[in-house]
């Protein structure tokens, strides 16, 4: 299905390019229709052939190698953010489930924290961590990880808490009749019973980690990642339009790779649960 969908999208792109207005168009007086000139909307074959040519004139490496390396870098950063975010989310949820006081104290802040537009957080983190101007270049990936964690942990925390609180009362009574202490009830009952809640939240967290990392890379110009490539290739858009799209391909592959990973994790976690449970 996937290659078919890809061909379909490429077909749509070329179809619009052949019939759409060169200089863009207005719908009900608002500029809505994208421009179809080669500068704004390169041909699909120009984009793909651009992948094989060097990044800058006279360079040795093909641009796909540069983009692949940057995508791999961003993937690893996003993966670290995802893992830390998921563990943190589960940890916070366990604490909230154990101590009602913590839930009441922390939950409102968690909700409010997610209303902050993440793009403002990047410079804030850099400022708070007080990186000197010299390590700024070498350590900004930490800010990218922090942003990824910040976005990834929230869905996991909320879903895990809900899952831990949805244990069937009959099962809890059984564990009580067996004189099981709280933590063994957590490990043997509450946590496995919460898996159908946690697994879909992990999918969201994977996507959120990628968004956080790429946004940090673009807004802070973190070197090495695919976000930075989008930023710098965008500046070449007028002289070399397809170049930007090679970086966009990289970002798409990044999101796809993370999606495949979290789906695999989801399947693995859910393999013992009844198929009808979500």
């Amino acid at each position: 299905m996937f290659p078919l969908a890809f061909v379909f999208v490429a077909g749509l792109w070329e179809a619009y390019k052949s019939v759409g207005p060169e200089a863009g168009g207005k719908v009900l007086g608002i500029r809505l229709l994208p421009r179809t000139a080669d500068r704004a909307m390169p041909h699909v074959w120009d984009m793909t052939s651009r992948l094989g040519r060097p990044e800058v004139r006279g360079g040795t490496e093909a641009i796909w190698q540069v983009v692949a390396a940057a995508t791999w870098y961003s993937f690893r950063v996003a993966l670290v953010a995802f893992v830390i975010g998921a563990l943190l989310g589960i940890g916070v949820a366990v604490l909230m489930a154990r101590f009602k006081v913590i839930e009441r104290a922390v939950m409102p802040y968690l909700v409010v924290s997610q209303t902050v537009p993440i793009i403002v957080l990047g410079p804030l983190i850099i400022g708070l961590m007080a990186y000197g101007s010299r390590d700024l270049v070498s350590k900004t990936w930490i800010a990218a990880i922090i942003l990824g964690v910040f976005l990834a942990f929230f869905p996991v925390a909320v879903a895990t808490l809900r899952g831990l609180q949805s244990t069937p009362p009959a099962s809890l009574e059984l564990m009580e009749s067996l004189a099981a202490p709280w933590w063994r009830t957590l490990v043997k009952l509450r946590f496995p019973a919460a898996i159908p809640f946690i697994a879909p939240a992990l999918r969201l967290a994977g996507a959120a980690a990628v968004v956080g990392v790429v946004v940090a890379e673009i807004s802070l110009g973190v070197p090495g990642g695919v976000g930075r490539l989008i930023l710098s290739y965008g500046q070449d858009a007028s002289s070399d339009p397809p170049k930007l799209y090679t970086a966009v391909f990289g970002a798409a592959v990044l999101g796809l790779a993370m999606a495949l990973l979290v789906v695999a994790i989801d399947r693995q976690l859910m393999r013992r649960h009844p198929p009808e449970a979500t």
Partner: peptide, 14 residues
């Protein structure tokens, strides 16, 4: 003592 309820209360994942 051992206990059994109306719902079997078996753990789905075991």
């Amino acid at each position: 003592y051992g206990m059994a309820f109306q719902q079997s209360g078996l753990f789905d994942w075991r």
